[in-house]
C-alpha cells in the first residue's frame, strides 16, 4: 500500500524485551502492519535485517562503543531514517547496561555502553523497561498520523509526540530524576503514580512522598516519565477520550 509508512528496527545491546513488547500487541500489531506500517527490516520479526531507508526506525538497546559494527549500524540508522525513536530504557538512558563493566562472555571486552543519544541525534524517546505494548502502539499510530494524516491529525500527532521529543534533551534518568526534577523542585503532590510505574518495585510511598531504593533502580526512566509532574500537556490529556477512541478505531 502506497500510503503506509516504512519502519525499521535496529537491535543493539538490548534483551529483546522491547521486541517482545512490540509483538505483544498481538492482533493490534497485525492491523498496524496491515494498514499503516510497512516493516522493512527487523531481526526476529522480518526477513530483512540490514538497515534500509525508512520513515521511522525504532532502536532497541544501548550502543556498545567497543563494538564497531554496532556503532556503524547506529550511524547508518540515523542516516537512513527520517525519525529515530529510542525504544526502551536502554536506548534512551542506558538502563541496566549502565552497570556494565565488561568481562562477560562471549565478548569480555565489550564494556562501554551508551544511550544512543550520546552518539546520534534521536527524535523521540519511549522510556521504560520493558516499554509497554500500548505505548509502542500509540507512538506508531501517532507517527503514521504525523507523516500521512490530514492537517488536523498532524497537529494532534505533533502535540502528542512533543513531550516525547523533549525527553531526548537528556540521556540520563533514574529514580534520581524524580528527586531532582520533581520533588526538589517542589512539584510532587504524592499521587503514587511513580510507584506503579516502576518495573522493579524500587519505589514506595513514605508519608505521602516517593522513596526510592536506589540499589534496586535499573535506570529505565519509567517513573519520571509517567509522573504527571515531570511533564503534562493539557492540550493532549484533556482530550484523552477522543484520542483513545481514535487510536482504538484505527486498530479495528
Amino acid at each position: 500500500m502506497a500510503d503506509k509508512i516504512t519502519l525499521g528496527y535496529t537491535h543493539l545491546s538490548g534483551c529483546t524485551g522491547c521486541t517482545v513488547a512490540l509483538a505483544d500487541n498481538y492482533a493490534g500489531l497485525l492491523t498496524l502492519l496491515d494498514k499503516y506500517v510497512d516493516l522493512k527490516y527487523m531481526p526476529t520479526l522480518a526477513d530483512a535485517r540490514h538497515v534500509q531507508k525508512v520513515d521511522v526506525s525504532f532502536v532497541e538497546g544501548s550502543v556498545c562503543i567497543n563494538d564497531k559494527l554496532a556503532v556503524q549500524e547506529l550511524k547508518e540508522t540515523r542516516e537512513k531514517s527520517t525519525i529515530v525513536v529510542a525504544l526502551g530504557g536502554c536506548a534512551c538512558y542506558g538502563n541496566i547496561t549502565r552497570f556494565s563493566r565488561g568481562g562477560q562472555q562471549n565478548q569480555p571486552a565489550h564494556e562501554a555502553y551508551l544511550p544512543i543519544g550520546d552518539l546520534i541525534k534521536v527524535d523521540v524517546f519511549i522510556p521504560g523497561c520493558a516499554p509497554t505494548p500500548q505505548m509502542i502502539r500509540n507512538v506508531a499510530v501517532m507517527a503514521y498520523l504525523l507523516l500521512k494524516g490530514t492537517k488536523e491529525q498532524k497537529d494532534l500527532a505533533t502535540a502528542f509526540l512533543t513531550p516525547l521529543m523533549k525527553l531526548t534533551e537528556k540521556n540520563e534518568a533514574c529514580f534520581c530524576e524524580l528527586m531532582t526534577q520533581v520533588i526538589n523542585q517542589g512539584l510532587c503532590m504524592g499521587c503514587g503514580t511513580c510507584v506503579a510505574a516502576c518495573p522493579v518495585n524500587a519505589i514506595t510511598m513514605e508519608y505521602g512522598k516517593p522513596n526510592g531504593e536506589r540499589d534496586l533502580c535499573i535506570k529505565c526512566g519509567a517513573c519520571y516519565s509517567q509522573c504527571p509532574r515531570s511533564w503534562f500537556s493539557f492540550d493532549v490529556v484533556e482530550n484523552y477520550e477522543a484520542i483513545n477512541e481514535a487510536i482504538m478505531a484505527a486498530l479495528q
Binding site: P127, A197, V236
Partner: peptide
C-alpha cells in the same frame, strides 16, 4: 495516553 510504565 502515555502508558510508559503502565502495561495493560
Amino acid at each position: 495516553l502515555y502508558p510508559i510504565g503502565m502495561r495493560d
